[in-house]
């Protein structure tokens, strides 16, 4: 698996580096993440590691309930005593390994062979001790249905000189009778934000295993508290 972990955005601040320069950093709280499943070539057709972050909240007043997950969360559970299960066991099909943790709130997979990881193990920020830069994926802040000036940085039109009621409009969008249609991909107003966004190649400034924190230089998509997928970058240089 590529070096990866799940986390949350804490917020931005400023710290000073060794040479006394101010560095704008985003504080990310990441892990510890349970390894929930290993995807294998043989069974799933691809190799990946599934990680989970943060325990799901339990319903109030039901802390003594023996099963932590609700029936819908458990999914379809095979009856071990059933004829089918007994036949499978007899044929040597093992039961999938259990992670032995609470149901997790945020679950994502990282592609690649598992290496030394096994189900139930934990991944912490210490895995990033040697990492120089990371890619951070999250959901950007939703800005709703936005006009072209905000969404695409169009310049709008003039305030005067005959411009009427179209000060924030786009200009022309195409030609006339030929081709008599709009070309695909013309930038217009529409939903802006609330989309999966990756900030690439952010320098990793500090790793704090004690508080499970990663400090990256620069901004990260989404609001404070938003869930993030953090991976070692595959950018060269």
């Amino acid at each position: 698996m590529v070096k990866g972990i799940l986390g949350q955005k804490v917020g931005m601040t400023q710290i000073y580096d060794d040479s006394g320069r101010a560095v704008p950093v985003t504080v990310l709280q990441a892990g510890p993440c349970h390894v929930l499943q290993l995807r294998t070539q043989r069974r799933d057709g691809y190799e990946a590691v599934q990680l989970g972050y943060l325990d799901k909240k339990r319903p109030r007043g039901k802390r003594s309930r023996p099963s932590q997950a609700s029936r819908s969360e458990r999914g379809q559970v095979a009856n071990i005593a059933s004829k089918r299960s007994r036949r499978r066991a007899a044929a040597g099909v093992g039961l999938p390994a259990k992670a032995g943790c609470e149901p997790q709130r945020f679950i994502r997979e990282f592609r690649g062979p598992a290496g030394e990881l096994e189900v139930g193990q934990q991944v912490t920020v210490e895995a990033f001790a040697e990492v120089r830069a990371v890619d951070v994926t999250g959901t950007s802040k939703g800005r709703g249905y936005s006009g072209v000036m905000r969404r695409h940085n169009f310049a709008g039109q003039r305030a005067s000189h005959g411009v009427k009621k179209v000060h924030r409009h786009a200009g022309g969008t195409g030609m006339s009778a030929d081709p008599s249609r709009l070309f695909k991909g013309i930038r217009m107003a529409g939903q802006y934000g609330n989309a999966r966004t990756t900030a690439r190649n952010l320098k990793l400034v500090r790793v704090d295993p004690e508080n499970h924190l990663l400090l990256v230089r620069g901004a990260v998509p989404g609001p404070n508290g938003g869930f993030l997928v953090i991976q070692e970058t595959n950018k060269v240089g």
Partner: peptide
């Protein structure tokens, strides 16, 4: 720790 406390611990090192 809540978010603000985490940010404060990070800032402490640079104060």
């Amino acid at each position: 720790m809540n978010k603000q406390q985490l940010l404060n611990t990070v800032e402490q090192t640079s104060l």
